[in-house]
Design a protein around this nucleic acid. Structure first.
Length: 773
DNA sequence: CTACTGTGTCATGTA
DNA sequence: CCTACATGACACAGT
């Protein structure tokens, strides 16, 4: 959170500088003090649980009229140009948030520089620019994250039908998400709490009811509700799919802004933009040609079959991996994309040159959607990007559900690899073939199951810690080194705790349970220390109520050294009453006749009196001639000897036995609780270790998937090369639609009719499925 | 006033 | 059977 603060603060300063450069003076203090609670919260210590709501509220409340602090500032500082400022404010006040300012800032440079920066898109430019403004020196993670989001923005735009205004809304919402995401990464667990967020959203809606949003909501009706479901389920983790919900809330407020952005849109074409205020849920259907597929994709979200935690967890994982791999994966993905032939569906469909920003899209979009769309082929994106001849005819050969990598690779038929199904092809075309496979791979069914199970198992307490942990681990590219650094410490700690069975008391009480057994001979754990001092005190006739020590040093009752840490106990402890003869007990109760410090001693005596346990009071009342500690801690034989030394009544004996029993049980209970606590702590540590392992495994999986993709590319190129050189008896090349190469078990490659290859592929595909069932 | 926590105590089981 | 110990459950006091 500190880093976040720093990041935002620095970003804010830089942002302010930028604003000043373009002629707008902004008083940061104004933002930090009271005008913009959300921003202040972000910087000064956000309760990120409120972040989402606050952002929306901010936008909505400021949507209306001159509450915008900046407008005030402008008036104050540019009174001479007040009118102009107001006019300008009219143009801007739609989104008078800092985010908006960032957009404005970027508008200018973008407009001027856009020509020289063909690789940057509008939305991308905006968000990434914001990123640049807010924290050029921030960590890699954040920049990568932002890039992911920004690219995702483009992806959305590219995927969705054309319409200008709404895209920008989504974009801004995505920026919101991005901000929240950053905040969430350092936020407490409650941030991800589904119900919590839902409440926030409810509040949000209520607050918006009075405003323009009401109309929007009313007009959108059930559709909005459905969208809301989607949003709620995923909002917890800033799932991009939540955009729809946020969009509704900010639709009107952002509309004008979009016009502004339109002007500077480097693409000059709205074709990429969604056709309406359609949410991603709507955009997704447009991406895939199969409504059934859409349903299957969206159903998890809409029906909530998957717990939000799962989604959050998956999203976290994805984000973690993205943060770690974003650069590499993206570059690799881009390379793959750019290596694709001109006939690449994506580029053809959208008439986008390989260097257009859209090609930089990261898989965030798919990653987010992938969380619920496991049906997307794991490798289809790359398959599409591969140069394929006669793909249309051969596409059906490949199972649409190629989520299992085994079927693809285990299959002896190479056809499946290189001739993706038409369905998937189109779906992925729109979904963004540039999505890095690792992310898609992460979302395959097996993976999701894994993650879900794990998450269910360790969800509690996992996220807050994991977020930071993953952050840490992914911040440093060498996860291994981090792991190693983590592991030893955790290992040692866990070992220590487990060995001593009391990690919590390791510092305060080296003699815990293990020592208790040894100490038990002369007095058990809790009071063993007292027994030592007791002996000394007894030597001088002291009776000292040792339990009082334990009262003073509750948690350190087992550590003798700690008992002496209380100086005032030294003379207090010498209030020896019990060692006197039973007949003298009553007089011993009275404070010593010494007039010195009499008052203080009385007070202390009263205090100790209050601190005495019930058994001590009872023992005193029954005139028990020895200390409770002796009663409790002495071994049986000594205890019996002690009893035999005195002429005790039956009541006294009974009380003594009760005291002993209770005292022992008391210590036992304390030990028991300590053990319990240690167990919990150890489990906590184990969970953390497992989380680290999980993160590491995820990283490794990404690596494997990447290498796998490369291998597939190689195999594909080889396949095409071999296939292209094959000639039939007439010297003509084989038609890829009719023949396919197939691996044989002995390593040889056979040319077989495609029908056969198809059948075999299906057979191969069925096996793992059955196995899974 | 309520909820939570820590502690002591009892009952019970185990070695 | 006794003793010591462990542990769940309950009560109570303090926060």
């Amino acid at each position: 959170m500190l880093s976040l603060k720093k990041y935002l603060t620095e970003g804010l300063l830089q942002f302010t500088i930028l604003l000043s450069l373009i002629g707008v003076r902004v008083d940061v203090d104004t933002y930090l003090t009271s005008q913009l609670p959300p921003l202040r919260e972000i910087i000064l210590g956000p309760s990120s649980a409120y972040t989402q709501t606050q952002f929306h509220n901010l936008r909505n409340t400021l949507d209306g009229y001159g509450i915008h602090p900046k407008s005030i500032d402008l008036d104050n500082y540019f009174t001479a140009r007040r009118l102009l400022s107001q006019v300008r404010a009219l143009d801007r006040f739609q989104v008078p948030t800092t985010e908006v300012n960032a957009w404005l800032v970027h508008r200018d440079p973008e407009g001027s520089v856009s020509g020289s920066q063909p690789s940057s898109g509008l939305a991308l430019e905006s968000s990434s620019g914001l990123q640049d403004v807010t924290g050029p020196d921030n960590g890699v993670r954040e920049s990568e994250t932002e890039q992911g989001f920004s690219e995702d923005l483009e992806d959305l735009g590219a995927v969705a039908p054309p319409v200008t205004g709404d895209l920008t809304k989504e974009d801004i919402d995505l920026i919101d998400i991005l901000w929240r995401q950053d905040i969430d990464l350092g936020a407490g667990r409650e941030v991800f709490d589904y119900s919590h967020r839902q409440k926030e959203q409810d509040v949000d809606k209520e607050q918006q009811d009075g405003g323009e949003q009401e109309d929007t909501w009313a007009s959108e009706g059930t559709e909005a509700l459905a969208r809301d479901l989607l949003v709620d389920g995923e909002t917890g983790e800033s799932f991009p799919a939540q955009v729809p919900g946020g969009e509704d809330q900010t639709a009107l407020s952002l509309e004008k802004y979009f016009r502004l952005l339109e002007v500077t849109c480097p693409f000059g074409e709205n074709a990429k933009f969604p056709a309406d205020v359609s949410s991603i849920t709507e955009a997704v259907p447009s991406e895939s040609e199969s409504p059934a597929l859409q349903n299957s994709l969206l159903s998890p979200l809409l029906t909530g079959t998957e717990s939000p935690f799962d989604l959050e967890q998956q999203w976290q994982d994805l984000m973690s991996i993205m943060e770690m791999q974003a650069m590499e994966v993206n570059t690799s993905a881009n390379e793959i994309l750019y290596s694709a032939p001109p006939g690449d569906p994506l580029s053809t469909n959208y008439s986008l040159a390989p260097n257009t920003p859209i090609n930089q899209n990261v898989s965030l979009h798919q990653a987010s959607l992938g969380g619920c769309s496991q049906d997307f082929s794991l490798f289809s994106p790359e398959v599409e990007s591969l140069p394929v001849a006669s793909s249309s005819t051969l596409l059906p050969l490949v199972p649409s559900n190629s989520t299992n990598l085994n079927s693809t690779f285990g299959s002896t038929s190479l056809a499946g690899l290189f001739f993706p199904p038409q369905l998937n092809g189109t779906a992925n075309d729109t979904a963004g073939p540039e999505l890095p496979d690792p992310l898609g791979g992460l979302l395959d069914e097996a993976m999701l199951d894994e993650i879900s199970l794990m998450d269910l198992a360790i969800e509690e307490g996992f996220n807050p810690v994991q977020a930071s942990q993953l952050e840490e681990e992914f911040d440093s590219d060498s996860g291994l080194s981090l792991d190693s650094s983590h592991s030893p410490s955790s290992l040692s700690s866990s070992e220590g705790s487990s060995s001593s069975s009391s990690s919590s008391s390791s510092s305060s009480s080296s003699a815990s349970s293990s020592a208790s057994s040894s100490f038990s001979e002369e007095g058990a754990v809790g009071y063993s220390s007292d027994s030592e001092t007791l002996d000394l005190e007894e030597a001088e006739g002291a009776v000292g109520y040792q339990p009082e020590y334990s009262k003073f040093c509750r948690m350190s009752y087992q550590d003798p050294s700690q008992l002496s840490c209380l100086p005032y106990l030294e003379h207090v402890g010498h209030n020896h009453t019990y060692n006197m003869a039973p007949s003298a007990l009553d007089s011993a109760d009275l404070p010593p006749p010494s007039t010195l410090k009499k008052g203080s001693k009385e007070k202390q005596a009263d205090f100790l009196d209050k601190q005495m346990s019930r058994d001590e009071h009872r023992a005193r009342a029954m005139k028990i001639p020895f200390t409770n500690d002796k009663i409790i801690n002495l071994p049986v034989e000594e205890f019996n000897e002690l009893l035999s030394k005195y002429q005790l009544s039956e009541a006294q004996l009974s009380l003594i036995r009760d005291i002993r029993r209770r005292g022992k049980n008391k210590m036992a209970a304390q030990n028991c609780r300590k053990r319990k606590l240690d167990t919990i702590l150890n489990l906590e540590r184990d969970v953390e270790d497992l989380q680290r392992d999980k993160a590491r495994l995820l990283r490794e999986k990404v690596e494997f998937l990447r290498s796998l993709r490369q291998m597939k590319q190689k195999v594909q190129s080889l396949y095409q090369e071999v296939f292209g050189r094959l000639r039939d008896e007439n010297g003509r090349p084989y038609s890829p639609s009719q023949y396919a190469l197939q691996y044989a078990g002995d390593g040889s490659v056979l040319l077989i009719p495609r029908t056969m290859a198809d059948q075999q592929a299906r057979r191969q595909e069925r096996k793992p499925k059955d196995r899974r069932k």
